[in-house]
Design a binder for these strands. Sequence first.
DNA 1: ATGACGACTGAATAAGCGTTCATTCATTGG
DNA 2: CCAATGAATGAACGCTTATTCAGTCGTCAT
Lengths: 218, 218
Amino acid sequence: MSGRRQLAVVPKRRTAPAEERREQLILATIRSVADHGLADTTIATVAQAAGLSQGIVNLHFRSKDGLLTETLRYLADEYRNACEAAAAVGAVDPVAGLKAMVELDFRRTICSRDKLAVWFAFWGERRFRPTYRRICAERDRSYDDMVRVICAKLCEQGGYPDVEPALVADGLSALTDGLWLDLLVRPESMSRERAKRIALSYLADVFPRHFSQPAQVD
Amino acid sequence: MSGRRQLAVVPKRRTAPAEERREQLILATIRSVADHGLADTTIATVAQAAGLSQGIVNLHFRSKDGLLTETLRYLADEYRNACEAAAAVGAVDPVAGLKAMVELDFRRTICSRDKLAVWFAFWGERRFRPTYRRICAERDRSYDDMVRVICAKLCEQGGYPDVEPALVADGLSALTDGLWLDLLVRPESMSRERAKRIALSYLADVFPRHFSQPAQVD
DNA sequence: ATGACGACTGAATAAGCGTTCATTCATTGG
DNA sequence: CCAATGAATGAACGCTTATTCAGTCGTCAT
């Protein structure tokens, strides 16, 4: 409760450039949502997490909703940037690309519990907010397009005529989301390492000649 | 918006037995959460969906939170009851049990979009509400225990010494959750039939001698 | 038919929260 | 060192919403 690590930078100066304050507030929002949930995240909890006053949010963002939207966009951009790096690998070597994708999805910086909490909080509401919808849909599409292309290439080059790339892509995508959920709500029985192992063994089942069953890690 | 089908029973009588009213309100809550999201579900939206007055919720439930908790419990019980039926099948025949499980998870009555919306709304908050946590954890455990036991039996009887039952159970569970998410937020690209096919092809990859790849359905 | 019971109503209340804005104060250029 | 600037504050305002409760009206036993 009290000894929470510092996500936000402690400001030495009383004033700071707008861009710096905006990021500070976005990080504070992530922390507040992770600590209290989206329903109990108020302007006050965000301001407190940032160590600033209440009025600051409306000074730097149009509204509370604007702050939440920017927070979601921040996470989506972070994910898509990481995705592009993996896509570059996949363009050269499909197998390495899929491995990079799994590696990415369960990297600490991408799926920390704080960030997962925010993702799921927004997923619960995305149907009802056109803006959330758009941001999430774009992120989903980056992922799906990329995995589908890589799988198609591997099916063709690797000789898997009976494997449907679209089906595998949807399966891997769904499996990843489900593993994220487990990481968030059942950390005692699911670790990033274990999740990675499950995802890789899925790929090993689908593409047995290109992925070996990952060794059992106790 | 207007031509919404009737989930709740239209009361002919002005008064009704408590148990009937409670269920009517729970169904109205599901509908309200599915229509407006959890954040915008108020006593007023629930009462309106039920065709009753505002005061009715506090008359039949301790509080709004009590109503939400009972709604979650209602869905969890429904799921667990269906689960037990599949477990009975699995006790006799592991392969039939897993098929029953997949069939169950993507049955219209279990994963209607209304109900999925409610599940995900609560999953976003379950970390922060001990009661939600408990109800969800029990549901998860029913599922996991059952699938794990069936997988273990199939691995032993079917001759899959290298397959780890716990890993497959976690994988199937995560895959199912992820497919549910797709059904909820991307209905245009995911159908219950397609989800079922993806889940079954996962099982076919893991237990190739006991599940055949489901035929391509266009 | 009638009176008593209690299910139901909905207006009133109070608490919580987002937003505004007059004021304060650090920073910077002259 | 002194203005001028504008970033930051936080109290006040008004709106939304959960909860209460006194009154209304069906229902049912007698």
